[in-house]
Computed example of a mutant assay.
Amino acid sequence: MNIETKRQKEKDIVALMIKIYCKKHHKSKHLCQECQQLKDYAFTRSDKCPFMETKTFCSNCKVHCYRPDMQQKIREVMAYSGPRMLFYHPVMAIKHVIETQKEKRRLENAK
């Protein structure tokens, strides 16, 4: 898989998670301003990531490039949306879990 495909896949997952979170917490059909800013920030971080070739997802990265406030917000979004992704996009959710587990095993074996 090439880097741009990987980057777009990560963006698609983050966008879906933020959409799920915003819909339930802010009762909005479209992203509210706060959630749109988080999505824009996440996309910018992904676009500038120098490790995209070797990492799967930001949660598995050794370098956390998010500002602390944005890091906390994205954790809230992921904690809420992660389990619910199965209802919105089951294939994407299952692939995400499998890839995350593979990456964690790879990182543990590299130690």
Rank of each mutant, 00 (worst) to 15 (best):
M70G: 06
D47P: 08
T56R: 09
K62I: 10
Q37S: 04
C49H: 01
F43A: 05
Q37D: 05
Y80N: 01
M70R: 05
F43W: 09
E99I: 14
C58Y: 03
K48D: 13
R45W: 10
K39T: 05
T54P: 02
Y41E: 05
K102N: 09
K73Y: 11
V77R: 03
E53C: 04
V91K: 14
E34D: 12
Y66V: 05
E103R: 09
H89N: 13
L38P: 00
Y88V: 06
C58D: 06
I94C: 04
K102I: 13
Y41H: 13
F57G: 01
K102G: 08
R84T: 02
M70P: 03
I98F: 03
D47C: 03
K102A: 12
H64P: 08
C61V: 01
C49L: 00
P90I: 02
F43M: 01
M70V: 02
M85Q: 02
Q37C: 04
F87W: 07
A42T: 08
M85R: 03
M85T: 07
F57S: 10
F51A: 10
C58H: 00
S46Y: 07
M52A: 07
K39A: 13
T100P: 11
I74Y: 09
Q37P: 00
R45L: 15
V91R: 14
L38E: 09
Y41G: 02
S59G: 15
F87A: 11
V97M: 12
T56A: 07
S81A: 15
F87M: 14
T54Q: 00
Q71N: 14
S81L: 04
C58W: 00
M85H: 01
M85G: 03
E103D: 12
S81C: 01
Q37F: 01
A42Y: 04
V91I: 12
Q71E: 12
E76A: 12
K62H: 12
K48W: 07
M70D: 07
M78Q: 08
F87T: 10
F51V: 00
M92W: 09
A42H: 02
A93H: 03
P68E: 14
N60S: 09
I94Y: 13
Q33S: 09
Y80L: 10
M85K: 00
Y66D: 12
Q101D: 09
K62T: 13
S81W: 00
I94K: 04
Y41R: 13
M52C: 06
Q36T: 07
I98T: 07
Y66Q: 11
F51I: 05
Y80A: 03
M92I: 05
S46I: 14
A42N: 05
P68W: 03
C65A: 12
P50H: 02
R67K: 15
F57W: 15
Y80H: 06
S59H: 15
C35G: 01
H96I: 03
E76P: 06
C58A: 07
C49Y: 00
S59P: 10
K102S: 09
R67W: 08
M78E: 11
A93D: 01
E99K: 15
G82K: 01
H64V: 07
